[in-house]
């Protein structure tokens, strides 16, 4: 089934510059797994939202879910 991954302008360095990806998955996959398989390193993930809502790392994806991954908050 298809899911969509959106990545911002900082994290897209890990997805070859693409900010919108269409991904085919089969079976039960978590949002985190998809984000990692797209190339985003685990320690760069701030949090993940699906369809606009923040989700836990074990959230199982459904058809046409739109995943958005955000970087960590940086500061002093």
């Amino acid at each position: 089934m298809k899911v969509y991954l959106e990545v911002g302008s900082f994290l897209n360095r890990y997805t070859s510059g693409q900010t919108s990806l269409e991904i085919d998955i089969s079976g039960d996959k978590t949002a985190t797994e998809v984000v990692l398989s797209a190339g985003v390193p685990e320690d760069e993930i701030g949090f993940i939202a699906v369809n606009g809502q923040k989700v836990d790392s074990d959230y199982i994806l459904k058809e046409n879910d739109i995943i958005r991954v955000y970087p960590l908050i940086v500061g002093g």
């Binding site: 911002g8 360095r13 701030g46 939202a49 923040k54 958005r68 970087p71 908050i73 500061g75």
Partner: peptide, 24 residues
């Protein structure tokens, strides 16, 4: 390394988006 590149690229202003999306 990428440790410092966040500070150089768009800088700390990139915080607005994740903080806003997460409600902080």
């Amino acid at each position: 390394t990428s440790i410092m590149s966040k500070y150089h690229d768009a800088g700390t202003p990139i915080n607005i988006e994740p903080l806003n999306a997460a409600g902080g």
